[in-house]
Amino acid sequence: MKLSAAVAMYVTYKRSVGMRFNTEARTLKSFCRALGDIPMTEVRPDEVLAYLAGTGPVTSFWERKHGAISGFYRFAIARGYATRSPLPSHVPKPPLAFVPYIYTRAELRRLLDVASSIDHPRTRIDPQVLRTLLLLLYGAALRISEALSLTMADLDLEQSVLYIRESKFYNTRLVPMGPDLAKALGQFIANRNRRYSCRPESPVFPCRDGSPITVRVAENAFRRVRNRAGVFRHDGARYQPRLHDLRHTAVVHRLIAWYRSGADVQRLLPQLATYLGHVHIAGTQRYLTLTPELLREASLRFERFAMEASHA
């Protein structure tokens, strides 16, 4: 059996059991291109190692490639398409776990101020569109793909609700907005509708020519805003603050506020997971250890609890 045929069968199988499998499918397609459409029996370990190694240092992408190919070969061996795995027996030490950047409130204000004023000739996004996009990513803790997929039909400004359709895990959910965010979005829409199409299928956040904004265009525009605002990492991390970190920041700020107000955070976590569109609560719980400030608030909560228990 040819490599591409076996990969196609594997991807079809994974999707038949309910997995989206887009990232892994792209990785395996790249694997087929690198090795050529050769019989499964002719795949050599040195070719696989060369594909995994790439041209740069070992990163989390090495792990993702290794995981995708490893899963494919387990499938292939179980069905007799291959007799052994050509993957290297030695797996290099993975890089340090990536830690999202949590913006301070002062940094958020600078980003929003710059976004509303920067009008670079190469930027395909109107400044007010970009500013409102950043505001919504933080205010509603959306994924960038979710915000860019919003159409006019997905807005219910009377009820202050966003309809997030077919998100990362095929979920559709309602995202309520606070009064300040709903007011800002309503003002933006009123101005937006004077320039761009109001049809139900039109994107809420269009490029200057009315076409939907892509993730790459948004990330490039944000990079210019971040540089102009002077927001940088100084902790030796490989990546500078990202657009997606606005979502992480929103969650951390909410958790800190809950701790400071005396709220029952553990009881509220399932509600937060639903709001964020997480399939498992573990995806939300990881935020509890994300920043020193959050850990400090949790520690103070525990100390107050311990003191009250000792005097009971």
Rank of each mutant, 00 (worst) to 15 (best):
A5N: 04
V7A: 08
A8S: 09
Y10V: 13
V11L: 03
V11R: 04
R15E: 06
S16V: 08
T23C: 00
T23L: 00
E24D: 15
R26P: 03
T27Y: 13
L28Q: 09
K29G: 15
S30C: 10
C32K: 12
A34F: 15
L35D: 12
D37F: 05
T41M: 06
V43H: 03
R44L: 13
E47N: 08
L49S: 10
L49P: 00
L49H: 08
A53N: 05
G54V: 14
P57V: 09
P57C: 06
T59G: 06
E63A: 11
K65C: 10
K65W: 10
G67D: 12
A76N: 00
R79V: 04
G80N: 09
T83P: 00
R84Q: 10
L87V: 04
P88E: 13
P88S: 11
H90V: 15
P95A: 07
L96W: 08
A97I: 09
V99Y: 02
V99K: 14
I102T: 08
Y103H: 15
Y103S: 07
T104I: 13
R105S: 10
L111T: 07
L111P: 03
V114T: 14
V114W: 11
D119Q: 02
H120M: 00
P121F: 07
Q128N: 02
V129W: 12
V129K: 12
L134M: 12
Y138N: 03
Y138D: 01
G139K: 11
L142H: 13
L148F: 04
T151I: 03
M152C: 15
D154M: 00
L157C: 03
L157F: 04
E158V: 06
S160C: 02
L162H: 06
I164D: 05
K168E: 06
F169Y: 15
F169L: 04
N171I: 13
T172Y: 08
R173P: 10
L174P: 00
V175G: 01
A182T: 10
K183C: 08
G186E: 02
F188A: 02
I189M: 14
R192H: 12
N193D: 15
N193T: 14
R199V: 14
S202H: 10
P203S: 03
P203M: 06
P203A: 03
C207P: 02
C207M: 15
P212C: 11
R216H: 09
N220R: 11
A221S: 14
F222I: 10
R224Q: 12
V231I: 06
D235P: 05
G236P: 04
R238Q: 11
R238E: 14
Q240W: 03
H244C: 01
D245G: 01
R247W: 11
T249K: 08
A250Y: 13
H253T: 09
R254E: 05
L255R: 11
A257R: 15
W258N: 02
Y259H: 15
Y259S: 09
V265M: 05
V265P: 05
L269C: 05
L269R: 10
L269A: 07
Q271P: 00
T274A: 13
Y275G: 05
G277K: 14
H278T: 13
V279P: 00
I281E: 01
I281Y: 01
A282M: 02
R286S: 02
Y287G: 11
L290Y: 07
T291S: 07
E297P: 12
S299M: 11
R301M: 01
F302Y: 08
F302G: 01
F302L: 04
F305E: 02
F305A: 01
M307E: 09
E308M: 00
A309W: 07
H311C: 02
